[in-house]
Design a binder for these strands. Structure first.
Length: 135
DNA sequence: GCCAACGTTGGC
DNA sequence: GCCAACGTTGGC
């Protein structure tokens, strides 16, 4: 079991869209590092759902339900997508500002590599964030 | 709206 | 293969 964080601009696709759809294809990623991370995803892996730009907070958890396949929206064939399913809400969203303040969360790419849209999260970081989210 | 931090493109 | 110019993301 691996852990991830995926970003979405609520303008474009928000957490409420995610909950309404229940499952969605995570396509449209056009960055090699993000793609490589998605390639490493397995069915059953869990992802934190982060709102970039607006909110700047982690709002819930989704689960990978289908492995990396080629992205139908990508004519070049270079990129791919996975499918994810709504898993749970947090009682309390975890703000970027809180993550930045916590000494044990400084290695999450969210902080230093702010442009990366799919990133791995360690078990320790995951447990800590989920704990915050429980309230 | 600005700008830092990347990533990509294209000329050489 | 290098690097300047340009484009994009995303925090502030």
């Amino acid at each position: 079991m691996k852990y991830w964080l995926i970003k979405s601009e609520p303008n474009c696709y928000s957490w409420s869209d995610m909950k309404k759809d229940v499952t969605t294809t995570w396509d449209g990623v056009r960055n090699y590092q993000a793609r490589n991370n998605m390639k490493e995803m397995s069915v059953g892996d869990l992802c934190l759902f982060y709102h970039s730009n607006i909110g700047k907070e982690i709002v819930g958890i989704v689960q990978v339900i289908s492995p990396f396949t080629s992205d139908i929206s990508d004519a070049s064939g270079k990129f791919g997508m996975v499918k994810v399913k709504y898993k749970k809400d947090f009682k309390k969203n975890i703000k970027l500002s809180e993550i930045k303040l916590h000494p044990k969360l400084q290695n999450i790419p969210l902080i230093k590599q702010s442009r990366l849209s799919v990133m791995p999260i360690s078990k320790e970081e995951w447990d800590l964030i989920v704990c915050f989210g429980e309230g």
